[in-house]
């Protein structure tokens, strides 16, 4: 009784994805990938030149980087701690 539900669920996803992938392949969706890279930019042509980083923004970036390193460090430490605590 268990198998039919999730096998159907997983198979439906794969079959659906396979069908759409075949459609995409047949319709040339994987060609001209260079042009595809520029599609979001069509409206941006009017924008001015890029702006430089101000000192405040550099500080902001530093704070963000600090948060990122702290978060990653905490996660890593927690995982190492978990693995060490659970040694068989």
């Amino acid at each position: 009784m268990i198998y039919p539900y999730f096998i159907t669920y997983m198979a439906a996803g794969l079959i659906l994805a396979g069908g759409v992938f075949a459609w995409a392949l047949k319709n040339g969706q994987f060609k001209d990938q260079q042009r595809a890279r520029y599609l979001p930019l069509e409206e941006s042509a009017k924008a001015g030149p890029p702006s430089d980083l101000s000192r405040i923004r550099k500080t902001e970036l530093g704070v963000l980087a600090g948060l990122a390193v702290a978060g990653l460090g905490a996660s890593g430490a927690a995982i190492v701690f978990s693995l060490l605590q659970n040694r068989p």
Binding site: A36, R37, Y38, P40, L41, E43, S44
Partner: peptide, 17 residues
């Protein structure tokens, strides 16, 4: 993200593939 970031950067997506 794929829409907003290239527009904000005024740069094409690194790789559509």
């Amino acid at each position: 993200a794929y829409y907003v970031i290239p527009r904000a950067c005024r740069a094409p997506l690194y790789s559509h593939t």
